[in-house]
Write a protein that binds this DNA or RNA. Structure first.
Length: 495
RNA sequence: GCGUGCGUAGCUCAGUGGUAGAGCACACGACUUUUAAUCGUGGUGUCGCGGGUUCAAUCCCCGCCGCACGCACCA
């Protein structure tokens, strides 16, 4: 007989004794959360005040006519001491049918055991929920990475402190991000996830079909083009905490669905947005986690402002030893790259080659480049939505913030010249025709919006999952996403 | 997508070409202040799935599935 069958039978025996293993309500009601009761331990125990605590039974030591156990609620853990003489024959018999994992309510008074543990001395207890499965072994935890992600509830139970603290941090960070933007009079908005055209980033989309409209649609790869339509409409500062979907590979820093913060500000340019990014990240870190220094593996990352700012050109020159401005065409740049024995895809355009040099830079820069850094002034090739920098031909007003070696934010002065935007889309379409299936598609409604007039504006996209990774020392994005995308496995029958 | 590694009890892990083990958990018993409680007794199983080699496969080979890591792609 399996553990599950044993527990189902126990539930049946409880029912036969008139006890519902899944009661709709219980009396008396919970009086305190566990930490709440512990905070008031002195007073409550002195007066032997009756308190009722609830939680999942996570350990248990049977001592004949008495039982010690620990119960855990959403906030803390406490030991319960239940003697037959205190709770009575009937309830003690019920207690004998309870298992690790069951939720119970316990009423009694707080006291300190002779070994010094603050505990709850039960005078009555009741079953709230019967558990039909064994909990993972308490001392080993749940280590299997696959099980941890597929059955996150088990992960949360077994590795409670570590796992819960990461996700609590995540929520606090995102709350702090909202607080920061709200305080600057940014308006949080929602834009379509289901889109007739996808744009705002270079990525492959997930496509789907709307039956009633008989139309193919896409899950958004970015909210960008909608948010900027709102600038056209007259909102000056908008942001969205946007779940995006990109039909691409999965690795330690990529999940097919991920959360991106985008915010746009009229009358600002990318230099203003640099300040915003620094301020936002440091505010969120300080507010949510109370510090600006963070462990990242063996290194301490320091978010203290100001962050290092360097042009992409200078950074690549410093760390890779190539000044790409000296190689203005694709062939000469590829030539020097090959001479330096840097491995790149030889079929790339010049912009892509520079992008690869940027990656090479982070490999070469080592731990120095784990610190926050802002790289600015990018080649125009890869930035179809970015305003050109008038002083430097071939360059756009764009920056990327990197943290812990990951690209954290990308930002630019938003292109608002409809003709220029049209030409860039055309250019993208040409690249698409050449087989680049990630180039952006012509969005003529967006062009029309720009024709109506979008004020000059700066915009930022920040990968919030990655921000959380950096601030919680998690090296894999799946550790900061509660239910990361998994491959399908055949469903177990009878589960 | 490619390469490497891994997949054994509920959990954490050993192990072997001769039909599978430990600790925890679990079952039964003892114990009314224990806390990795203790003591006694007893099981745990499609050894990821499918095929092949072999007298015999959990082990060797092939394919598949899943996961991890690296590369590619991307944020």
């Amino acid at each position: 007989m399996s553990e599950r069958e044993i527990r189902i039978e126990k539930a049946q025996r409880l029912r036969e004794q008139g006890i519902d293993p899944y009661p709709a309500r219980f009396q008396p009601e919970r009086t305190h959360t566990i930490p709440n009761a512990m905070e008031q331990f002195e007073t409550l125990s002195e007066n032997k005040t009756t308190v009722t605590l609830t939680g999942r039974m996570v350990s248990r030591r049977d001592m004949g006519k008495a039982v010690f156990m620990h119960i855990e609620d959403g906030y803390g853990k406490v030991q319960v001491y239940a003697r037959r003489d205190d709770i009575g024959e009937e309830q003690f018999a019920v207690l004998k049918l309870l298992d690790l994992g069951d939720f119970i309510a316990v009423s009694g008074y707080l006291f300190t055991t002779k070994t010094g543990e603050k505990s709850l001395h039960a005078h009555s207890l009741s079953l709230l929920t019967k558990s039909l499965h064994q909990l993972p072994a308490k001392h080993e935890g749940l280590k299997d990475a696959e099980l941890r992600q597929r059955k996150r509830y088990l992960d949360l139970i077994a590795n409670r402190d570590e796992v819960m603290s990461v996700f609590i941090a995540r929520t606090r960070i995102i709350s702090a991000v909202r607080e920061f933007l709200d305080s600057l009079n940014y308006l949080e908005v929602e834009t379509p996830i289901l889109q007739p055209l996808y744009g705002g980033a270079t990525a492959k989309p997930f496509s789907t079909h709307h039956n009633a409209l008989d139309r193919d649609m896409f899950l958004r790869i970015a909210p960008e083009l909608y948010l900027k339509r709102l600038l056209v409409g007259g909102f000056e500062r908008v942001y969205e905490v946007a779940r995006n979907f990109r039909n691409e590979g999965i690795d330690r820093s990529h999940n097919p669905e991920f959360t991106m913060l985008e915010f746009y500000e009229a009358y600002a340019d990318y230099t203003v947005m640099m300040q915003r990014v620094e301020d936002l990240v440091t505010f969120a870190a300080q507010k949510a986690l109370g510090k600006l220094q963070f462990e990242w593996g063996d290194v301490t990352i320091d978010l203290t402002k100001p962050w290092r700012r360097i042009t992409l050109r200078d950074a690549i020159l410093q760390y890779v030893g190539i000044d790409y401005d000296e190689y203005p065409d694709r062939e000469s740049l590829l030539n020097i790259i090959n001479k330096k024995k840097i491995h790149v895809d030889p079929n790339r355009g010049r912009g892509r080659l520079i992008d690869e040099l940027k990656d090479e830079m982070f490999r070469a820069g080592g731990i120095e480049l784990l610190q926050p850094i802002i790289l600015y002034d990018f080649p125009v090739d890869l930035s179809p939505l970015t305003k050109k920098k008038p002083e430097v031909p071939g360059t756009v007003e764009r920056f990327q913030a990197h943290l812990a070696g990951m690209q954290l934010a990308t930002s630019f002065s938003e292109l608002n010249d409809p003709q220029d935007q049209f030409d860039r889309f055309e250019d993208q379409a040409a690249q698409r025709a050449l087989g680049d299936d990630e180039s952006q598609t012509m969005d003529s409604d967006y062009i029309e919006a720009l024709e109506v007039g979008m004020p000059p504006a700066g915009g930022v996209g920040i990968g919030l999952d990655r921000l959380v990774m950096a601030l919680t020392n998690q090296q894999n994005i799946r550790e900061v996403i509660l239910f990361p995308t998994m491959r399908a496995i055949e469903q177990q029958e009878n589960m």
